[in-house]
């Protein structure tokens, strides 16, 4: 039977203050993903190995981790892409680790609320009057940015977030942009104020790592660039026309 070696960076604050690595040699099949390997270890070798997962079809966003140094969903990364080489699995970079491959994502959960990711309107249309009409073209303006599964791969790949945790980060800005671009929404100004108050966005140098690692092709880099342009425009309007930029 073919086998493959999986090395995992582990950490348990109850038993040691430092992370350590552990290697497992397990049976290999061509259709196995990295998540299958971790579950094999958990079920048959070492029940203390700790990782998050749920849908195993790349849509719940739970199972992000560093795989041979790259931020990936473990349910969508095949062992065959590394075999017969070894696979190194680490927790997502730039996050505090709770245990083994489980990261603390409370920072993102707080930032998500901050950008007000819901439809903001001055007046609600009564339900009896039906839907807000939205053409397929209007839908296309924001659809791509609504595909974010909150998997945190982009934060892990973002050099700005790596050194400045106050940066709202790619996914949060992409979601703010998603609502800003929605024809039903009128909350652009409120969100601009919030995004503008965070310094980090100006440090984003359009490296594009967030877009490269995004498993859902959300293109957060484009959302950030467009948000910068919008903020700059508003800044200049407020400068030449200070009595009203709304």
């Amino acid at each position: 039977m073919s086998t493959i070696k999986i090395t995992v960076t582990r950490y348990n604050p109850e038993t040691s203050s430092e992370p350590f690595t552990q290697s497992y040699t397990i049976p290999y099949k061509e259709d196995m993903v990295v998540l299958d390997a971790l579950n094999y270890i958990k079920n048959h070798v070492d029940g203390t190995l700790t990782h998050r997962w749920s849908c195993r079809m790349g849509v719940c966003g739970s199972c992000g981790m560093m795989i041979n140094g790259d931020a990936k969903l473990s349910c969508a990364t095949f062992l065959r892409d590394y075999y017969p080489g070894e696979v190194q699995v680490d927790p997502l970079a730039h996050f505090p680790v709770i245990r083994d491959l489980v990261i603390d994502m409370s920072d993102f959960m707080d930032k998500l609320v901050e950008i007000k990711p819901w439809i903001i309107r001055s007046e609600e249309k009564p339900l009896e009057e039906g839907e807000y009409l939205q053409s397929p073209d209007e839908l296309d303006l924001y659809r791509q940015f609504s595909m974010c599964i909150n998997c945190m791969l982009c934060y892990s790949a973002c050099p700005v977030y790596g050194h400045d945790k106050s940066f709202l980060g790619p996914a949060a800005i992409a979601l703010a942009h998603r609502y800003n671009m929605d024809s039903r929404d009128e909350g652009q100004d409120q969100r601009a104020e919030i995004i503008g108050s965070h310094e980090g966005i100006w440090e984003c140098t359009f490296v594009g790592e967030c877009t490269r690692v995004c498993p859902k092709h959300v293109d957060p880099a484009a959302a950030i660039q467009r948000t910068k342009v919008q903020l700059t425009k508003e800044y200049f309007i407020s400068w030449i026309w200070p009595w009203g930029n709304r």
């Binding site: 819901w118 439809i119 609600e124 249309k125 339900l127 009896e128 039906g130 839907e131 807000y132 009409l133 939205q134 053409s135 397929p136 209007e138 839908l139 924001y142 659809r143 609504s146 609502y179 929605d182 039903r184 929404d185």
Partner: peptide, 20 residues
């Protein structure tokens, strides 16, 4: 009304050319 409510909450339902 529940599906309309979800539309009002921003769900990106697929649309016909007339916007419905």
């Amino acid at each position: 009304e529940e599906l309309i409510q979800l539309e009002h909450w921003g769900c990106p339902w697929s649309r016909d050319p007339d916007g419905r």
